[in-house]
Design a protein around this nucleic acid. Structure first.
Length: 305
DNA sequence: AATTACCGCAACCGCGGCTAA
DNA sequence: TTTAGCCGCGGTTGCGGTAAT
C-alpha cells in the first residue's frame, strides 16, 4: 500500500528548522492547537509539508520535553520496556512522557543496543542463562520461558530503579543538564551566517514566551489540545521561564488523551500497566513510580502465566 | 595543524491503520 | 465495498561535532 510522499511538492523546504519557522509554528499551534496538520502550511505560510510540521512540534517544540542525558532510572525503564514491548517506541515513550519516541529510539540505537550487546557477550551475562530479547529464542516454549524471565527481570530492575528513586529522587532537571540551544538550529545559524547565536537565543526566548502565554491564557484548553508543559529546552536560557514551565507539570493530561490509542498498541501486560496508570491518574495525582511499583508487586497479577 | 573515523541527533521516508466520501 | 487522503509510527539517512591519529 502506502502513498506517494507528501513532501515532493515543488517549493517545499527541507532540512533544519529556523527559529523564525519555529515561531510561526508555535504561534499557530497556540492559536489552533495541535492537529489538523495539513492546514498548517497553508495557514502559516510555512514552506514545509504538514508531516514536517507535526514532527517538529512533537519532537522538539512541544512543551514538556526533557532534553539532556538519560538518567539511570530512565535507562532501566527503556531497557525493560523494550524487552516487554519490542521496538514500540511510541508505547515506550508513553511511560516516559518527558521524552519523545524519537529520543528514546535514538538513545536505544546509539547507546543501549551496544550496551546490551556487550552484556550479552560478557561472562556474567552468559551465567544468567537468558537474554533480554525474545528474538534469539527459536521455539515457542523457549520464547515463553524467555518472556517470563524477561518480565521477572523487568520487575526486578524496576524494583531496583524505584528503590533507588526513593532513596535518591530523580535529580531535578536543571539548566546545566540542558543544551543551551538546539544543535540543529545552531548548525543552521553557523552555516547560513544570517543570524547570530544571540539572535537565536532571543528567538528561543520568544518561543518560550509564546508558549508561556499560551499555557497561562488557555489553561482550560490545554488538556483538550493534548498539550501541557513542565519545562522546556526552549526556555533553558531563561530561568524564570523555566520555573514557570516546571510548575505546569500536567503531562498526565497529554498521556490521558492518548491513553486509548497507546493501550491498543500494547501487549496485554503493558496494556494492563498502561490502563492502570491511566485509570489512577484520572482519580488522583499519584506519582508514576508508585503506580509502577503497585503493578509490579501485585501478587495477584494473573498475567505471568 | 590537518585529516579521518566515529558518534549523536534532527529530520526524512515509506508503510499501515483509520476514516470519510 | 472501494478509494483517497490524513495521521502516526518505525526505520533510515544526512550532517555537524568531536575524538583519535
Amino acid at each position: 500500500m502506502g502513498r506517494p510522499p507528501c513532501c515532493d511538492k515543488i517549493g517545499v523546504k527541507k532540512g533544519p528548522w529556523t527559529p523564525e519557522e519555529d515561531i510561526m509554528l508555535v504561534s499557530y499551534v497556540q492559536e489552533h492547537g495541535p492537529g489538523n496538520w495539513r492546514a498548517v502550511p497553508t495557514n502559516t505560510g510555512l514552506r514545509r509539508c504538514s508531516k514536517s510540521c507535526r514532527l517538529r512540534w512533537t519532537n522538539y517544540l512541544r512543551p514538556g520535553i526533557k532534553r539532556g542525558s538519560f538518567t539511570d532510572q530512565e535507562e532501566k525503564m527503556i531497557i525493560q520496556l523494550q524487552a516487554l514491548l519490542g521496538n514500540k517506541w511510541a508505547a515506550i515513550a508513553s511511560y516516559l512522557p518527558e521524552r519523545t519516541d524519537n529520543d528514546i529510539k535514538n538513545y536505544w540505537n546509539t547507546h543501549l543496543k551496544k550496551k546490551l550487546k556487550k552484556l550479552e557477550t560478557s561472562d556474567l551475562y552468559s551465567k544468567e542463562g537468558h537474554c533480554l530479547s525474545p528474538l534469539v529464542s527459536t521455539s515457542r516454549g523457549q520464547w515463553e520461558r524467555t518472556l517470563q524471565t524477561d518480565i521477572n527481570t523487568a520487575k526486578q530492575a524496576l524494583q531496583n530503579a524505584l528503590s533507588l528513586e526513593k532513596s535518591s529522587p530523580i535529580p531535578e532537571y536543571t539548566t546545566t543538564d540542558v543544551k543551551p540551544i538546539n544543535l540543529g538550529c545552531y548548525s543552521y545559524i553557523k552555516q547560513e551566517g544570517e543570524v547570530s547565536t544571540s539572535t537565536y537565543a532571543s528567538s528561543a526566548e520568544n518561543i518560550a514566551k509564546l508558549l508561556k502565554q499560551w499555557t497561562r491564557s488557555d489553561s482550560t484548553n490545554i488538556s483538550e489540545q493534548s498539550k501541557a508543559s513542565s519545562s522546556t529546552q526552549l526556555s533553558s536560557n531563561n530561568n524564570a521561564t523555566t520555573e514557570e514551565f516546571e510548575s505546569l507539570s500536567s503531562f498526565e493530561s497529554f498521556e490521558q488523551s492518548n491513553s486509548d490509542q497507546f493501550s491498543q498498541s500494547l501487549t496485554p501486560e503493558a496494556g494492563k500497566l498502561h490502563c492502570e496508570i491511566s485509570k489512577r491518574e484520572v482519580d488522583v495525582q499519584v506519582p508514576l513510580s508508585v503506580m509502577l511499583e503497585s503493578w509490579l508487586f501485585d501478587e495477584n497479577d494473573d498475567l505471568l502465566i
